[in-house]
């Protein structure tokens, strides 16, 4: 009776670890294919196939958004820090689309490295806060940036100004 129970316990561990390692191997084989999108760096390095529908994702470069005044056409750049890709899109952008925002684009990469997007999705991060807190944070960080850019002779002076900003953050 007791040994039967131990046998079932062993079988239980066998099932769980068997299934776990099978899935682990499968995921390792899938590797990058499970990613929803390619990074701009991957598109730059030629890792991304040309002329095939694919997804790319990155942050919209500040100041790179150019809207065509006569149509819905829009051009912008996305970056992941290691590479930048030009994106061309024609259509309505999601509400959350803005400069500095993470987005995912579906479309085709042409020979010139220009991304022709058919769909633009906005990605949002895991931060949630009220607008007032956001503006308070922005003023705090801008004053901190000012004090950092100021040529400070005494490092103690700079560190003395940070605790206030740190408390807000």
């Amino acid at each position: 009776m007791k040994s039967a129970r131990r046998q079932r316990l062993a079988l239980l561990f066998f099932i769980v670890f068997g299934a776990g390692s099978a899935l682990g191997l499968m995921l390792a084989a899938l590797d990058e294919n499970a990613n929803l999108y390619l990074s701009p760096a991957q598109m730059r390095s030629g890792e991304a196939p040309v002329g095939i529908r694919l997804r790319g994702g990155g942050l919209v470069v500040e100041g790179s958004v150019h809207r065509d005044p006569d149509s819905l056409a829009v051009a912008f750049q996305i970056t992941d820090g290691a590479g930048t890709v030009d994106v061309h899109y024609k259509g309505i952008l999601p509400d959350l689309f803005r400069e500095g925002q993470g987005i995912v684009v579906t479309g085709v990469l042409d020979e010139d490295g220009q991304f022709r997007a058919e769909e633009v999705l906005a990605k949002h991060d895991e931060t949630y806060m009220p607008p007032e807190v956001k503006s308070a944070l922005e003023t705090a960080s801008s004053t901190r940036a000012e004090s950092a850019s100021r040529p400070s002779g005494d490092p103690a002076d700079d560190s003395a100004s940070t605790p206030g900003a740190g408390a807000v953050l």
């Binding site: 995921l27 499970a34 990613n35 929803l36 999108y37 990074s39 994702g57 995912v104 999705l121 990605k123 949002h124 991060d125 895991e126 931060t127 949630y128 806060m129 009220p130 807190v133």
Partner: peptide, 24 residues
């Protein structure tokens, strides 16, 4: 965390600071 997804990361953390304002 393992893959790049459209879904954002976890906001609630059992250890450490949650990336959500206390009012929410």
């Amino acid at each position: 965390e393992w893959w790049s997804t459209l879904h954002q990361g976890a906001s609630l953390r059992i250890v450490g600071q949650s990336s959500m304002d206390p009012s929410m």
